[in-house]
Design a protein around this nucleic acid. Structure first.
Lengths: 201, 201
DNA sequence: CTGTATATGATACCCAGGTATCATTATTGG
DNA sequence: CCAATAATGATACCTGGGTATCATATACAG
């Protein structure tokens, strides 16, 4: 029947435009019109693919969430198994620090969403608790194994260690975003933390 | 000449109204009209005391900042000097966790501002770097003294310890706000961290 | 008292932005 | 090649919200 554009592809383009706007000008600057302009298309097109703004925003959030999950999974899969536990943990956590520009964009937008979710009942807050919970569980698992291998002292509690590791990392992440820490300084703190978690032989 | 209302007092009322709105409905819900309604006054009155919305918002930010500073100062002053260093540190950090309702309100609004400042050049980002910097310096000072007293092992770096202590606390704070941690759970993690910083005798 | 500066109220203007409507342009199966 | 459907464009409507204007009330100095 009609000419066929790739719907999924179109939506991705629009969501990418939204993310760029949100990262550059803030989530409050995301409007149907600004997204259209950023994507170089007409307002009507945005309406065509996303009936309402709420749908657009939710789609973008789900997109970021999926993207995040898949990156974490890749981080884990990329690591060959027999490598040093500390290296695995360090690589794993690097994903949570907004070091390069794409990562910075991602974290800026994600954080904006999280803050929105604090007060907006329409925006599901679940991703912001489920995501970290999942990461923490994976981390705890890694730490438990490292402890079994004797790389972490026996008197440490892997579950709590995972929790505070995530907290340190998250704290450093937002600190970078806000311009208080350089990525390098943040990584130094993180390394210090890991030095104490994995005592040198 | 005219009847005199207490300007400063009026402004405080309006700012308090703004904070309530921001904490309840989000910073995006803060409008001249919503603040007026929340304060139970007319829109015109808000305009009278704050010519523009930007002024109102900036005033509120400064108010929160001042309030924060003074609470931290009180935290420090309240502690008698000869007490256990760990107790001082713990009390100090308790201020950074949104445990009770007023504190939660404060942190919610403060965080909203911080996220805004990430992308809004008009909103000074300085408070969000100066504030923590100052706290970190004070913390480092406390830790140095504790180390001199032998309460903290000599191989620790007080400056970095202060940094990550702040990061853990900040991470826990936002985690509470987002509903991922209960205040109790957060405090447990913090205690665990302090247990390792101040090894038991 | 009374005028004058202060304080408050009512309301209007105007733009931005979400949504809706109508039209027009492709594309492709028959 | 044509009709039907998908895709895109132009534009209008309406509300919310920042700002501006005009009017009124209040209090105190002289």
């Amino acid at each position: 029947m009609p000419r066929t554009a790739d719907h999924a592809e179109r939506r991705s383009q629009l969501i990418a435009a939204l993310v760029r706007v949100a990262a550059r000008d803030g989530l409050h600057a995301v409007t149907m019109r600004s997204v259209a302009a950023e994507a170089g298309v007409s307002l009507r097109l945005v309406q065509y693919y996303f009936d309402t703004k709420a749908q657009l925003v939710h789609a973008a959030l789900r997109h970021l969430e999926a993207q995040s999950n898949q990156r974490w999974a890749a981080r884990l899969a990329d690591q060959p198994d027999p490598v040093e536990p500390r290296v695995v943990v360090e690589a794993f956590l690097a994903e949570a620090l907004p070091t390069d520009e794409p990562s910075r964009v991602f974290h800026t937008v994600w954080t904006s969403y999280a803050v929105l979710a604090m007060t907006d009942p329409d925006l599901a807050a679940q991703p912001f608790v489920d995501g970290p919970n999942h990461l923490e569980a994976q981390l705890a698992q890694l730490l438990r194994r490292a402890q079994d291998q004797g790389r972490i002292p026996a008197d440490r509690n892997p579950a709590i260690e995972a929790a505070r590791l995530l907290m340190v990392t998250h704290g450093l992440g937002t600190s970078i975003l806000v311009g208080r820490h350089t990525p390098d300084a943040a990584q130094a703190v993180l390394r210090y933390h890991l030095d104490r978690l994995f005592p040198p032989a």
